[in-house]
Computed example of a mutant assay.
Amino acid sequence: MNKKKVAIVSNSLGKGGAERFAALLTFMLENTGFEVHSIIVNNVVDYSYTGTLFNLEKESSKSFPFYRKIKKGILLQRYLNQNNIEIVIDSRSRNVLLRELITRFIYRNIKIFYIVHSYNFKNYFPDSKFWARTIYKNAEALVCVSKAIEEKVNQFLELKNTTTIYNPFFIPETEVKNAILETQKVILYFGRFDEKVKNFSLLLEAFSQSEIFSKGYKLRLLGEGNDLNFIKQKIKSLNLQNYVEIFPFKNNPYKEVREAKFAILTSNYEGFPLSIVESLALGTPVIAVDCNSGPREIIKNEFNGLLVENHNPKALAQAINRFGDDDELYDFCKKNASKSVVHLTLNTISEQWKNLLNKPK
C-alpha cells in the first residue's frame, strides 16, 4: 500500500518549542503510516527526527544573500513537486505577508495544515483580518496547540476550519520510571533565555522576595538564548549570585527535572509549554503563572501544581514558599503529577493527527 506523503515545514529542528514539536511530529506520523519529509528553512538540527530531511538553507547557501530567499522558495516548490507531496503541515512562524502569499501560491495544489504555536499572533497572522482570512480560509485546518488559541483565532478570523491538538511529550519509559530517592532543594527553569517571552524579571524578583534560599534552596536555570547577559545582570542587581545557577541547554534534561523539587514557568505568553508537561510526566510538580495560553489547560491548581496570577511577584513568592513549607500539599501534587498528563502521550496525540490528516473533505 502506498503511504501518503507528508512534508512538515518548520523554521529548523533546534532549540525551541515549535521546533521540538516538528521533530516529534516526524515520529508521530511515521508511526501512524505516513511517509515523512522534513523541510527546514534554517540550518539548525538539534533534535532527533525520522524520515527525509531537506535543508533549504544548505541547498541555497551558494546564492547571493538577496537571491537566497527567492531560491529557497524555488527549491521548496521543486521539492514538493518532485516528491509528489500530498500534505503539507506548516509549523513555521509566518510573520511576513508577502512571503506568506507567495508560500500559499507554492502550496496551491496540496492539502495544507497550518499550526499556530503561540498566543502571540504577530508571529502567525498578518495584522489585517482581510489578508489573514485570504491566507487561511482555504486551508484544510488551522491546528491550534491550546483551546485558548483556538478561541482567539475564531474571534479574530471567524473561520470554521480550526481545531485543537495539544503538543505531546515523548520521554523514554526508562526515564519516566527512573526514581529519584530524594529531590534536591532546587527550583528549575528550563527553556529559552528570552526575557520578552519568558519574563525572567518576574521569576528572579519573586525568588528574591520568597527568601527561600535562606532555607538552602537554589534556583537553577537551564538553557540558552540572547538574554543570558540580561539575566546575569538581573541576578547581580538582586544580590542572588550565590543562589542562582546557570547551566547550558540540554536536549533531554530528564535527570535535572526529576531531581528538582519543582519546576517553574513565568512567561508573558506561551502556546502549550512542553516544559510543564515534561516536568509533570517525570513526577515533578510545577508552579506556573496563568499566562495565555497553556498553563491553565495543564495545571490543576493544588492538584499537580500551583497556578498563580501573572505579573504578581508577591503571589509567586508565596507560591514558592508554599511548596517549600507545606509538605502535605507538595506531596499530594507530586503524587498526581505524572497521571495528570497521560492524555498527552505520543501515541494518543499521534492518533489525533492521523485522524485529522485522513479526514475526508
Rank of each mutant, 00 (worst) to 15 (best):
E86S: 15
Y136G: 08
D327A: 12
A317S: 12
A337V: 05
L159P: 00
F190Q: 07
P313L: 05
L98S: 14
Q318T: 08
N358A: 07
K69Y: 12
K234E: 13
E175K: 05
N161E: 07
V9R: 03
Y269A: 02
Y107R: 07
A319D: 08
L307W: 12
Y254M: 03
D46N: 13
R108S: 14
S350D: 00
K361L: 08
F125Q: 05
K72S: 02
L181S: 05
N321T: 07
N11Q: 11
R296E: 10
L344V: 08
R94S: 14
N83E: 13
V244R: 03
K71R: 15
I115D: 00
P172W: 12
R192C: 02
A141E: 06
T26G: 02
R108Y: 14
R133V: 04
K335I: 11
E302R: 12
F200V: 00
D290P: 05
K71N: 14
E256W: 09
Y217W: 13
T183V: 08
E205Y: 03
S267R: 04
I102R: 13
E245Q: 13
A132S: 15
K218T: 07
Y243K: 11
E175V: 04
Y269R: 07
L316H: 01
R322I: 14
I320Y: 02
R20M: 09
N84R: 15
T32M: 10
L357P: 01
V153N: 06
L101P: 00
E182Q: 12
N42M: 14
L316S: 01
L76K: 00
Y189K: 06
S279L: 04
K335W: 10
S279P: 01
Y189I: 04
W131V: 09
L329S: 08
V41C: 09
S210R: 07
L357V: 06
R99P: 11
P285H: 04
F170Y: 12
N167E: 06
N199P: 01
A315P: 03
E224V: 04
E351D: 11
L13V: 02
K334I: 08
S293E: 07
N123F: 15
Q352P: 04
L265P: 05
A337T: 10
D331V: 09
E205R: 11
T163P: 00
